[in-house]
């Protein structure tokens, strides 16, 4: 429910500067917002619109196209179980059933304590490692039911918080370009843009 924090606004401006056209920073900024709050709030979208010279509707239009952006709160841990073909062949659907049973919610729902949200997702590019799932986009290859159960215990008790940041953070390493190294020729010769 928040606009970007002052620090994140600084980060946002750094990101915007990397693109020949500011609108290209829209998805990266939505990730910044989601990293800040765990989801993308209306206020954040409005703020991002202001930073990029877009209407809030334009921000929402882009944001809502993409699966990863959550327009409502989700759990601290997003459990994405792949049920697509390669995983289906090797028990992906059964794994999902187990996950749903273990966490007591169906795919699409969040546990009452706000810890876990389960999703039945499309292929996550780990097909030779089926069945598999991701927790906050961290992979668990060829995972067994028992392994999943102990993963849940670990997450509940905070034992793996180093390894798996809360929902919203994808990469924990950001690209940094020292000012004297940036070539900065991207926009040269681009026709003027009229919005």
């Amino acid at each position: 429910m928040a606009r970007l924090s002052p620090d994140n606004e600084v980060l946002a401006r750094q990101i915007i500067a990397r693109y020949p056209r500011s609108r290209s920073a829209l998805i990266p900024l939505l990730h910044v917002a989601q990293e800040q709050d765990g989801w993308v709030s209306d206020d954040a979208m409005e703020h991002i619109g202001e930073l990029l010279g877009l209407t809030a509707a334009e921000v929402l239009g882009t944001c809502s196209f993409y699966e990863m952006f959550k327009l409502e709160r989700v759990g601290t841990y997003l459990v994405n179980v792949c049920t697509n073909i390669s995983c289906q062949l090797l028990g992906g659907e059964e794994l999902l059933e187990h996950v749903e049973g273990r966490l007591g919610v169906k795919a699409g729902a969040t546990t009452p304590d706000g810890m876990f949200t389960v999703e039945d997702v499309e292929c996550i590019a780990a097909c030779t490692e089926a069945p598999c799932l991701q927790v906050n986009y961290r992979y668990f290859h060829q995972i067994t039911n028992a392994e999943f159960d102990s993963l849940v215990d670990d997450l509940r008790s905070g034992r793996r918080s180093d390894e798996i940041p809360p929902h919203g953070t994808t990469t924990r390493i950001r690209q940094h370009v020292p000012a004297d190294r940036w070539a900065g020729l991207g926009a040269e010769g681009l026709p003027p843009e009229v919005t």
């Binding site: 993409y66 699966e67 690209q175 900065g184």
Partner: peptide
């Protein structure tokens, strides 16, 4: 030249 790392959001 510059190389910019960009990532999508699921689609």
């Amino acid at each position: 030249m510059d190389v910019v790392l960009h990532w999508g959001a699921g689609a």
